[in-house]
Design a protein around this nucleic acid. Structure first.
Lengths: 159, 159
DNA sequence: GTACTTTTACTCGGATACCGTCTGTCCGAGTAATTATGG
DNA sequence: CCATAATTACTCGGACAGACGGTATCCGAGTAAAAGTAC
């Protein structure tokens, strides 16, 4: 039971895209290189982010990706949801139904309620942080590094 | 990213063992049958619970398993920990280190702090419920079924 | 110089392979109660 | 009847096979800008 590595990569990818000026895009290849990720697989992640309406894509020469929403409106939770999907962490196998021979199929698990509460509590934390706040932290913790990254984005940007 | 089914089975197994009178044990085979689980694999789960000091085992004829702690001292969280292990839900791959060329290896991830907080919040909920409270809920929700289960335990118990 | 074609550099989506983990099965070893055996 | 041996019914732990999901690679198709070509 562990979160996919794709979530972390996606967060950083969006953090990079957030540095782009308006109307500019960044090719997926460039992002994957910067992240040191497998290029082809990383593009699959980007498409998930597109499906989730977090970023938009433009095909063709001078194409690439850019943010669809404002950084302050993209929560870590949204990225998590885009990559991991919406199925919950806990899924009862209905053992209790068989064991107690219960007719009522729904909610025949003693743990489901508790687990849903736990998951909500977990997700609530992920909903607090946004790309905007994450970027502020970056600038605060590593100001010169953030500058470097910004420069790299300016160099690689298209359009 | 989904919890193992073994956690649910283990919770119900301990819920059954909790019904045993003192000094009595229940063979793993009987429990697995009641749960409708694969017998051989389920015994692996039981051994994990033994390692976690939640239950004790006695070998030999008339052997089996019984609780090691009192039901009110066994939290759902303890069972989760015994089965899933102690590694956290989120594990940074250190992408940010490479990307920003950071020397400081530890805590070079913008998400680790947030994720740890989220996980703590999640675990806190699992720590609230114990086998004792879970048993109370069962008796309250399905009083006659709990009675049936209790009768079955009396029939199957050893010693 | 304009209209058209070709090339180029991207995204998109499916098919497929690899690998680690969870699930499940099997076997031999250890343990202790029960049963069988011999005196 | 008592002591010892054999059987039985469990747990224990390792080795191993299968299923599944995440990761990764490759390919053809679509798209649009740029470059080339013809008149």
């Amino acid at each position: 039971m562990q979160m996919k590595t794709g979530v972390e990569q996606s967060v950083y990818a969006i953090l990079i895209l957030q540095m782009l000026p308006d109307k500019a895009v960044l090719p997926g290849e460039a992002i994957s290189q910067q992240l040191g990720a497998s290029s082809t697989y990383f593009q699959k992640l980007l498409r998930k982010l597109v499906s989730a309406d977090l970023i938009t894509s433009v095909p063709g020469v001078k194409g690439g990706f850019k943010l669809k929403k404002k950084p302050e409106n993209i929560r870590v939770y949204d990225i998590y949801l885009a990559i991991e999907g919406k199925q919950s962490l806990y899924c009862s196998s209905g053992v209790l139904c068989d064991m107690l021979a219960l007719e009522e199929v729904d909610q025949c698990c003693l743990l489901t309620g508790l687990m849903e509460e736990a998951e909500s509590s977990w997700k609530a934390v992920l909903k607090r942080e946004t790309i905007a706040t994450l970027y502020e932290k970056t600038k605060k913790d590593y100001p010169e590094k953030a500058e470097m990254l910004q420069a790299w984005v300016q160099e690689k940007k298209v359009l």
